[in-house]
């Protein structure tokens, strides 16, 4: 069974984000890591490989820095990596990334395509589903369990207030929700072997694009959320303070 995992490198969740004066994210001193949801996807891919054989190939779009995250996935046990790295992708949006990933994946053997449900940086939760659309494949989002067979798979996905079980023919795209598995640590042998595994860096031309797909959206400026206002503390006799609380909830906050 051949598995492709889409991986995004994001800021480490403990990194404090600061902005430059031009409204762009300050890249100095930030540490980067595999998007945590994509780690679940990598782990699920490795488990499928351990069960069915085949290969796990990591595919990503990004800058040279992304190589270290792909190497981490290789150290965890993935077999190969593909990084689409092209200056023309600097302003890529979700649509562009999905088009590029779809093109890169269609040149690989695949039965199951895995990705994280969402990236923790921009939280768009679009790319993997767009990849499925671009490749005309079924997709199941936010899965908590995946049972694969030769030509079909049953996925349990999270929905509001419960779970839903969906059976799809393969190949198909699945996005991982927290709870799908507990990602392994790369072990020492894996780390030592990762650098000798194939990590192919490809340009848009290598993939067969004659021109870069034009983004449909742009990100002119970022701003940090304003600091939260201090809460209101109601003091006094219980009867008076409850009356005041009800008044504030109905008249000020307008939530009741």
């Amino acid at each position: 069974m051949n598995i492709v995992v889409c991986l995004k490198q994001t800021f480490d969740t403990e990194t404090k984000i600061s902005l430059n004066s031009d409204g762009k994210i300050n890249e100095v001193g930030v540490t980067r890591a595999i998007n945590p949801y994509d780690e679940f996807a990598v782990e699920e891919g490795l488990r499928l490989k351990e069960k069915f054989g085949g290969e796990v190939v990591i595919v990503s779009v990004g800058t040279e820095k992304v190589q270290e995250s792909i190497r981490t996935a290789l150290a965890m046990g993935a077999d190969k990596g593909v990084l689409v790295q092209d200056p023309a992708l600097e302003k890529a949006d979700e649509w562009v990334v999905a088009e590029v990933l779809a093109k890169a994946i269609s040149q690989l053997p695949y039965d199951i395509i895995l990705a994280g449900r969402i990236a923790v940086d921009d939280q768009s939760a679009q790319v993997a589903v767009r990849v499925a659309e671009a490749m005309n494949l079924p997709s199941v989002s936010s899965i908590l369990e995946l049972q694969a067979e030769e030509s079909k798979a049953t996925a349990t996905r999270e929905i509001d207030g419960g779970t839903e079980i969906i059976e799809v023919p393969l190949p198909a795209v699945f996005t991982a929700q927290k709870g799908l598995n507990e990602p392994r640590y790369p072990n020492m042998m894996g780390i030592m072997k990762a650098k000798s595994k194939e990590l192919k860096v490809m340009s848009l031309a290598d993939l067969g694009f004659t021109e870069a797909p034009a983004p449909k959206t742009s990100e002119p400026v970022f701003s940090l959320p304003g600091s939260r206002k201090a809460g209101i503390k109601i003091q006094g006799e219980p009867a008076d303070s409850v009356r005041e609380l009800v008044r504030l909830l109905t008249e000020e906050a307008k939530v009741v």
């Binding site: 072990n187 780390i191 990762a194």
Partner: peptide
């Protein structure tokens, strides 16, 4: 080296 960084993080 990259290996040492990855080991340290792991």
């Amino acid at each position: 080296t990259d290996d040492h960084i990855m080991m340290k993080k792991m």
